[in-house]
Structure formats: structure tokens, C-alpha cells
């Protein structure tokens, strides 16, 4: 099968592997310690663990874009903010 038209690179493959691993981690987490039912967070939103993952990923995308737009490369600062943001989302939202 010739996949050259898809123009794969290791960084983009890594990105998708990360998303896949995140989804699998969520499954394992729910299996080991169930608790993914909706709860009411500080924003007054009813979110499950999956919702929180979605909010984290979508928010991280915008944080990285904002970092790129304001401070340009390298993106480590954006990554650090995203991780803090993700932890905060999983803890409190």
C-alpha cells in the first residue's frame, strides 16, 4: 500500500499516536477506577472525563496557536501552559 500521498512525518505521526494513547489511557483509567460519570464543575458544566479530555485538547490547540501568534517559536511555553490547563480542567471543571 503506497501511502506517500499522505506525506507522513514522524512529528505528525507522534501527534496522532499521542491522541490514541490518551484515548486508551482514558479507557484503562475508567476500568481501574470508575468515576467518569458527569459531575458539576466550577463552570457549572456537567462534564464526564471524556468531555474534560476534549476541553483539554481543544483548549491546548488554541493555547498553542495563541503562543505561536504572540511569541512565535519555540512552543515550549505554550506546551507548559497547556499541561497546566489540562491538569486544571481535569481537577476542577
Amino acid at each position: 500500500m503506497d501511502l506517500s500521498w499522505m506525506a507522513w512525518t514522524w512529528p505528525t505521526a507522534g501527534f496522532f499516536i499521542f491522541i490514541l494513547l490518551a484515548l486508551m489511557t482514558m479507557m484503562v483509567w475508567e476500568r481501574l477506577s470508575p468515576g467518569g460519570n458527569p459531575r458539576n464543575g466550577i463552570l457549572g458544566l456537567n462534564t464526564t472525563r471524556g468531555d474534560r479530555l476534549f476541553i483539554t485538547l481543544l483548549g491546548s490547540a488554541f493555547i498553542h496557536l495563541a503562543w505561536l501568534g504572540i511569541f512565535s517559536t519555540p512552543l515550549w511555553g505554550g506546551l507548559a501552559i497547556s499541561i497546566l490547563y489540562g491538569v486544571a480542567v481535569f481537577r476542577w471543571v
Binding site: W5, A7, T9, T12
Partner: peptide, 26 residues
């Protein structure tokens, strides 16, 4: 996925691509 792959590269047709990182996004 293909769009994500294209977005970080420069294309010259005939499936030849060069890595550009986040240059296009910027």
C-alpha cells in the same frame, strides 16, 4: 490526518515534501 501532515510541510508536486514545522501556521 493528511491535512495535518500537509500543514507542516512544503510541497513541490509529485509527492515531494519538505518539513517546515509550524511556519505556515505562523
Amino acid at each position: 490526518m493528511t491535512v495535518v501532515n500537509y500543514s507542516v510541510q512544503e510541497s513541490f508536486g509529485n509527492n515531494i515534501f519538505f518539513w517546515e514545522g509550524v511556519k505556515w501556521f505562523e
